[in-house]
Structures are given as C-alpha cells and as structure tokens.
Amino acid sequence: MAPWVAGRRRGAKSLEAEFPGAVILDVTSKGPEPWVRFSPFWPHGGVPVPGMPGVFSESVEGVWQGLKVFEGADADPGRFRITSMRGIKRTVRKYGPVLGHRLGDELVPYERARREIYLPTYRWVLEHRLGALVERLRGMGDVVLLDYTVNGDVGELRVPLSHAQLVRSWVSSGVVGR
C-alpha cells in the first residue's frame, strides 16, 4: 500500500483517528533520523544541478534556491554549498518578485522549473541517495508521511509542492510527480 501524506501541523490524536495503526513519519527538516533525510534541505552532497554540467549541490533545496532569479537578484550558486540546512531559502521579501529559475542560459517559468529542475533533482536523490530508506518504507505497511504542505499536483502553482507526495509516488509507482 502507498503511504498517505498529511500536514505536519496536525495533532497526534487527529492523525491517529484518521490513520489508526499507521506509522507516522515526519519527513521534513524537523523530522527525526533517518526520515529527515527525505527533506529537500538534507545535504546528501553530489546532487547534479540541471542545466549546469559538472556542477553539484549539497541538497535539492540548494539547487532550487540557487537557480531562483528575482527582480532584485540573479541566481546564487553559493546556495549549492550550504550543508547546515539553514540559510538556504531566498525570499520575495528580501529580493522582490521571482522572475523564474535559471536552466542553462534560459530563464524558465515556475511550472516548467518544477518539472525540469525540482522533480528530476529530487528523483535523483531518491534513486542515488535514499534507495535503502525507500525500500524500508515499501516494507513498513501503513505509513503516513508528514510534510508542511500536501499538494502533489505539480501544476498547482498557488501552493508549494509537497516532497512527501513525491516520496509517496516514488514508493508506490517509481514515478516522481505528474
């Protein structure tokens, strides 16, 4: 059975009532070992940066934030080197509206960036860094993955994409994103 995904901010009693007997795993950057390793912030190292042959990042989030272009700031490859899981995010409050993401020499819009940068990068980590944990998940029975958002629709741009939904999809079908 595929894992379920639920919001991290829900209470334990609510989760237990909706998913009786299921193992609850927090896969965010606040989660416990080893499940925190599913967080896009986790510094796996050696993560290929799309559009930049021979360039690598410590984390998926480093790629995503490092390639983001704002009205007041271009891409920041320094984000690729962050290993602390802190100070990776870049915000519109500081840099102005997001214009897109760098993919090679091209500036691509948000949905395309999700499909051509985020999804392949997260899939690479699932394949090359998290295989043993994915297999553990597949053998655990009823599991609920906690994340800050539950959006699994890559085309739904008003809500951040849930990496827990990507894990769910990978565990159940070997596909990341739709």
Rank of each mutant, 00 (worst) to 15 (best):
A2R: 13
W42Q: 05
E127A: 11
A75L: 13
L166V: 02
G66Y: 01
L145M: 06
E127H: 02
W4Y: 15
E106L: 11
M1Q: 13
F80C: 01
S169D: 14
K89V: 13
H101A: 07
G139D: 07
K30F: 11
T83G: 10
G174W: 03
D76S: 12
R114D: 04
G174K: 05
A113N: 05
K68A: 12
L133T: 05
D76E: 15
V92G: 09
A113S: 15
F41W: 14
P43E: 08
R37H: 05
A113K: 02
L103S: 04
V47S: 02
L157G: 09
W35A: 11
M1V: 15
L161M: 02
A73H: 11
R112C: 02
R138Y: 11
W124I: 03
P20V: 11
G54C: 07
P53G: 10
P43G: 11
H101C: 03
P77R: 12
G31V: 09
L137Q: 04
G11K: 13
G7F: 02
R37F: 08
E135W: 01
W64P: 01
V23D: 10
W4H: 15
S14W: 08
P20G: 10
F56S: 13
D147C: 09
S169C: 05
P34Y: 10
Q165D: 01
G7K: 12
G21A: 06
T28G: 04
R37V: 07
A22R: 12
W170G: 00
L166K: 02
G104E: 04
Q65W: 01
V49G: 04
L133C: 09
E111N: 05
M1W: 07
P3M: 06
F70K: 06
Y110A: 11
V167Q: 04
V175R: 15
P97T: 14
Y110L: 14
V49N: 03
T83M: 09
I24R: 09
S162K: 10
G72S: 09
E111A: 14
R93I: 01
A6V: 10
A132L: 14
L130P: 04
N151G: 10
A12M: 12
S169A: 10
A113P: 07
R115D: 01
S39W: 01
V134A: 04
I117Q: 00
A6F: 03
F19I: 12
L25Y: 05
S172H: 08
V150E: 14
P77K: 13
L126C: 11
L130R: 06
P53Y: 03
M140F: 05
T28R: 10
A6P: 04
V125C: 06
R93Y: 12
W124T: 01
A132G: 08
V134T: 10
I24T: 10
L137E: 06
R102L: 08
A73L: 14
R102N: 02
S169L: 07
V47F: 00
P20T: 09
P34T: 12
Y148A: 14
V150F: 05
L145C: 09
L126M: 06
L119R: 01
L15N: 10
V55Q: 11
D147K: 02
